[in-house]
């Protein structure tokens, strides 16, 4: 499953995207996020599944633009710490 956490408003697209087929819930991404927006939890979108997955915490889903801005993801050569930390390439971002 592709989980797009975030939103699009008049000013742009702001999503952190988790591919649950690649994510094994290891949690390597959680401590590297300076804003602490990530967590490992049950799959809220498949109640019959038992696997864990990385997710953006609910309270940050509406303000990714602001929470993630210190990581300056609009610099072309810069890789987000969460993206870099994932050895399975399960995390991407939209901007």
């Amino acid at each position: 499953m592709i989980a797009n956490f975030g939103y699009k408003d008049g000013s742009g697209d702001f999503y952190i995207i988790i591919d649950t087929d690649k994510c094994n819930g290891c949690g390597d991404c959680v401590p590297v996020c300076p804003a602490g927006i990530l967590e490992v939890r049950d799959n809220e979108y498949d109640p019959m599944a038992d696997d864990l997955m990385a997710a953006v915490k609910e309270e940050f889903r509406k303000k990714i633009k602001y929470s993630c801005s210190p990581c300056k993801p609009d610099n072309i050569d810069y890789t987000l710490p969460c993206v870099k930390a994932c050895q399975f390439d399960a995390i991407t971002h939209s901007w």
């Binding site: 499953m1 592709i2 989980a3 797009n4 975030g6 939103y7 699009k8 408003d9 008049g10 999503y15 979108y45 498949d46 889903r61 509406k62 303000k63």
Partner: peptide, 14 residues
Amino acid sequence: GKVTNFLMNDKCAA
């Protein structure tokens, strides 16, 4: 009926 891809926009009223 199993979710394979999703997004939810509840941030913006548009």
